[in-house]
Design a protein around this nucleic acid. Structure first.
Lengths: 242, 242
DNA sequence: GTCCGTCAAGAGCGCTGCTCTCTTTTTTGA
DNA sequence: TCAAAAAAGAGAGCAGCGCTCTTGACGGAC
């Protein structure tokens, strides 16, 4: 089993090559990806691809999984690069990393954050990857709250039913005791108000990136990067990051 | 010319009927709309449709134009229904109208705010309709600014290049002198800070609606309407609406 | 050295958007 | 009023699509 028989290796390589070509086609032709075109470019006949992916949907799923992973990697890497205690810097770094990844991989971004394919249902293994960005943002807020540096401006308070949803999310948050080396007490978690303001930053992040990727800022904003930076700073203000 | 010859009338009716059937197919099958299926349902042969729409793209364009118009109508109607001086109420009414329209027409919403079709370029006559929602929101902010009731919280200031973009947008804003019956002086326009905060509400609105329509809140937020309302209130806070 | 699993190829099915030609029906102009 | 013109629909056909099934050929294990 430790010996990855030659056959298995060349198979894995060709599988990657198929995905690579498919990714390139995706970038030019959009979501209407043609299996036959991919096969042609690889010098294969279309039916041969079915040895590697059971269907077109399965190939797309593989690309979606890879995209979530790449975006999650980029976000977490950006968070890790910034100074731990520079909370606002970490927040902005993650936001800019998401935007940069989207700008460099617009088709893959559209695949995961654009209109979903009607009949398509995301496999279970994608949901974990899909949450990595919001968990990264949440982790920054949590670090801020723990060190008592989350000082949000006075804003409207969420109504009780929303508070219940938010409380559930706070309880569901993966125990981050290992991050700070401290036991997670009740005063270590976010309040509902803090989470609500943080989630505003989450939807703002992807809303604005989608606007830019999908061309909705076309004749509205020219200074895209600076505008994005300013908007993310506004959301950091709202979240209460110093 | 005043007599709309019987033939022209039945043609207009059939054109509408084609769009209606196409809209229904869009709702179930998503963006992969089949001309042949639409023709079949109408008892026509596929080539007959080409008497009414030169191509599948042209049919989709007609649906897009209709969608922008319907969404713009809904937003403006909601704005008009609320009391003029209830600025926050108008803001929230417009936001909820956009959300409700999207919930009732998810496929059409995806058509105009989802991932764009790669080769597709929007015709010029859509851009005006596409701006109606943001102009409605801007009008509310402008009304607030004119009556001196825009009191935003202290937040980061936009850097000079962004200020230039914002100033251009303010200058481009259609002269709204007829709305208040007053001449538009310089003190009647929005400041760059005010516009930047208002635009945050704009991208937040569509970001959050897209999240909901595209299923990204699926196991995150259960109280969708109340959560949306709270988030829009947060953005009204940020914009400075009393 | 044989045998079995894997691989690529080819043919083919039903579907798609779109074009072209032909016939029928309706409108129009002298 | 009647023929010419315009418009509408039907049908055949082209190239492309995803996908299935069958047929040979090759390579590693016994």
């Amino acid at each position: 089993m430790t010996a990855p028989s030659i056959r298995a290796r060349v198979r894995a390589e060709l599988t990657e090559e198929i995905k690579s070509v498919a990714r390139r086609h995706l970038a030019t032709d959009g979501a209407n990806l043609s299996l036959r075109a991919v096969a042609r470019e690889l010098g294969l006949v279309s039916s041969a691809l079915y040895r590697y992916f059971a269907s077109r949907d399965e190939l797309l799923t593989a690309l979606i999984v890879d995209a979530y992973r790449a975006l999650g990697d980029a976000a977490e890497a950006a968070d890790a690069t910034a100074t731990d205690t520079d909370l606002r810097g970490r927040w902005l770094a993650v936001c800019h990393a998401v935007r940069q990844w989207a700008l460099h991989h617009p088709a893959e971004y559209a695949l995961i954050y654009g209109s979903p394919v009607p009949g398509y249902v995301a496999p279970a293994d994608t949901t974990a990857s899909a949450q990595r960005v919001v968990l990264t943002l949440g982790g920054i807020l949590l670090d801020a709250a723990r060190t008592g540096r989350l000082t949000p401006p006075p804003t409207s308070a969420p109504p009780p039913p929303v508070r219940a949803d938010l409380a559930r999310l706070i309880a569901q948050y993966p125990d981050a005791a290992d991050q700070g080396g401290r036991a997670a007490g009740s005063h270590d978690a976010l309040t509902e108000e803090q989470l609500a303001r943080g989630l505003a930053g989450w939807s703002q992040l992807f809303g604005l990136v989608s606007f830019e990727i999908f061309g909705r800022l076309e004749q509205v904003v020219d200074q895209r990067e600076l505008y994005f930076d300013h908007q993310m700073r506004l959301m950091a203000d709202l979240a209460g990051l110093p």
